[in-house]
Amino acid sequence: MSTSIPTGGNTTQLMSVRDPDVRLMVRVRDHDDPEAFADLVDHYQNRLVGVLRHILGGHPEEAEDLAQEVFLRVYRTRKKYRPRAKFATWLFTIANNLALNALRSRRRKPTVSLPASESGPLGPRPAEQLVADSQAVPSKRLAATELADVIRAALDELNERQRMAVVLNKFEEMNYAEIAEVMGLSTKAVKSLLSRARARLREVLQDYIYMNSGPVPTVPDPEEDA
């Protein structure tokens, strides 16, 4: 299906050539094309749910509900879409805004989250758990789960903005300029945000850093240097 690109001039054309998802979004904007929108949902659902899950923590349903809201927001605001950057940048800008709103309203209405094992139908049934246990080497599975829990907790140590910057940088492989655009910050602010976040992660994960990778590098004692 050929798509005319009536607005935005050279930048639009350039972005459309570079990013196939921009072309899909332009079809949604100009023709309300449901197939193009379905392709976008299909293409980005895993990434979006993954990012929101890391940002929000908690139950998977919450991240999925919010991801759905992000896609619907994309559709509702399609007429305002101007492709000046990659489509992903626009999508994650909306996701960032909604995620921060969700975290703010969660703070206003604090809830107690139960571990999966105590949450009735959300947790694995005993028989399912036994099957899962029997299919994995127990110590390895436990170690992997524990490590994931520790890293999850380390991420939770970061403030919301640091966590968002880390997740976009690590899992979406966004550079500083893209993160700045998504989060509405300067590139310098993102540099500083990521620096503080990574220093904090390094501090919290200190005991796990050299767990599987040989000896800890020796660091000279500052007293000796003096």
Partner: peptide, 13 residues
């Protein structure tokens, strides 16, 4: 520390 984040599970919808 950065590489440790690779151990986080990738949630799928």
């Amino acid at each position: 520390a950065w590489e440790l984040l690779d151990h986080l599970p990738r949630p799928e919808p």
